[in-house]
Design a protein around this nucleic acid. Structure first.
Lengths: 302, 302
DNA sequence: TAAAAATACTCCATAGGTATTTTAT
DNA sequence: ATAAAATACCTATGGAGTATTTTTA
């Protein structure tokens, strides 16, 4: 008993006529006759009470007709649902993101994805970089928004946007009136520094930049997130180097300066486990790229 | 997408291993691999994320696995139910019967059938002979207990029991002390007669018997059913010829006499529409025959 | 007599088998 | 090195087509 045979039998009962049923199925009448005979043999049950000219449906046949209809509907529905799931139009997507995204592509990407795939359930989780990488690797997180590069062969990444570094000082700082600074001018300044745990990538980058400029920063305060860094700087605790996203904040006592050394910008990307490129992940990645294209960093100190 | 393929896919997911799945399905591993690949092609969906060594199930695959399980369970259940319906172990059976059965095989047949097929719903309908024949012909009644012969090519019959005719007189009758009568002795008696409508077969038989004995009966009263006939006779309204079932009644003023002419007995049979020999009908017929075999007419005036 | 199902036969698509290759652990 | 999936190639079952027969309404 397979679905094709059930379709055949359903057609015969529905049409009440082998010839018309065969036509509606797009096959010839003799194979249809044979398939129904075979079905009856296989089940060991008489489904149709025949004469050479017509037939009527036995009680067992009526039962099968009723059940077959439900089974076929269920199979069709399943096929459609699986197709949709395969294209990522439905299902559940666990999205991990590091805090920095809050002010960049996350809102746009989520809004676009929700609009494009309303049937996908999104589970958004803000996480620390290291936990996010682990989550992606062990499958707890389907897709992550975090800063590449990540040294994990198991993960694949696409870079979405680049954010230049800016130098931050408070409005009372001696350099506050400048539009551009040399990193060397910060050599003896107290630093508000991204923590190694909360933002290892930025931490490393800032340390490198300082080293390249010829000094080791004196760290007055650690902070995990860009908004905390900005508020500490605005409070006069120290200077900082931070991605241009800081311009999203409206902090009167904060000044953002261009860096004459032009350090390489920070990247933000979308990552997923190699081999988990399901429709959901592919779709989210695509939508995130679209969101990144139209994303405009706020005016960079024009 | 057919049931076989779904069984294959379910086995692969359940076992987590193509080789073991193939073994559990009783096929070789390569065809299983190919069938899963074909299923993915047909659906246009990646169900398993493979390496050459192992695989994991994609979200779409998990969805299909879950749905396939339900579909397969439903199909198996349907197959079992249809088989049962085909053997007549389940379903609904409309049984028509003429009143005479009330005192003969009906109780035994129904009790046995209920015991043997507890899942069959019985719809018992007492009907007049003519309506029962019509009901059998048009399909409203599945199986009937009535007196053959019936001149309808559309119906098939099996005779269950034979009931000898007895002569009935009231206890004050001049022949009441006899054990045997000649039909000719009733020539001038008033008759309680089965009506032509209610019991056409017995009516005809009684008229024939009288004619053969050389007289036309003087009909004092008509009655439709054996119990009515018996009570009229017991009331002294007239004599009657009736099947031996009358001995089922405990009527003090009723005498049942043997008929020396030994008329052919009346038959009672089970009938069904030719070509409606469904499992239900076959089973009922068989059980009715079994009931008839053990049926013992009450002591015939020993 | 006409129309419908059943049968006879032929063909080919495809499921399944065996042998072998590839690759990940 | 081993074990697991994939591939190559072959066979044969059986599903579908055409032509024809049978039957009954």
């Amino acid at each position: 008993m397979d679905l094709r045979t059930l379709r055949y039998f359903s057609a015969v009962v529905r049409e009440g006529h082998f010839g018309r049923a065969a036509a509606s199925l797009g096959i010839a009448q003799p194979p249809l006759t044979r398939q129904i005979q075979k079905l009856e043999r296989d089940l060991g049950v008489s489904l149709l009470q025949r004469t050479r000219k017509k037939f009527e449906v036995t009680p067992a046949g009526r039962l099968l007709y009723e059940r077959a209809g439900r089974l076929l509907d269920g199979a069709d529905q399943t096929e459609a649902d699986v197709r949709r799931a395969g294209t990522g139009e439905t299902g559940r997507l666990v999205i991990g993101f590091v805090h920095s995204n809050t002010f960049t592509i996350l809102p746009g990407a989520v809004a676009r994805f929700r609009a494009a795939y309303p049937d996908v359930e999104m589970d958004l989780r803000e996480m620390r970089h290291d936990n996010l990488v682990a989550g992606l690797e062990n499958g707890g997180i389907d897709v992550g928004l975090l800063r590449p590069p990540v040294s994990s062969r198991a993960l694949q990444a696409v870079t979405l946007i680049h954010e230049p570094f800016l130098a931050l000082v408070w409005s009372g700082h001696r350099l506050a009136a400048r539009r551009t600074v040399q990193l060397g001018q910060f050599a003896s300044e107290p630093f508000v520094m991204y923590s190694r745990i909360g933002a290892p990538l930025i931490h490393t980058r800032v340390m490198e930049m300082c080293k390249r400029a010829g000094f080791a920063p004196r760290i007055a305060q650690y902070a995990d997130q860009i908004d905390t860094v900005a508020s500490f700087v605005a409070a006069g605790i120290g200077v900082a180097l931070a991605p241009s996203t800081v311009t999203s904040f409206n902090m009167p006592s904060l000044r953002c300066l261009r860096i004459a050394d032009r350090p390489a910008p920070l990247a933000m990307g979308v990552m997923w486990r190699t081999g988990n490129a399901s429709g959901l992940v592919r779709n989210f990645t695509r939508v995130a790229r679209e969101a990144a294209v139209v994303w405009r960093p706020l005016a960079l100190l024009d």
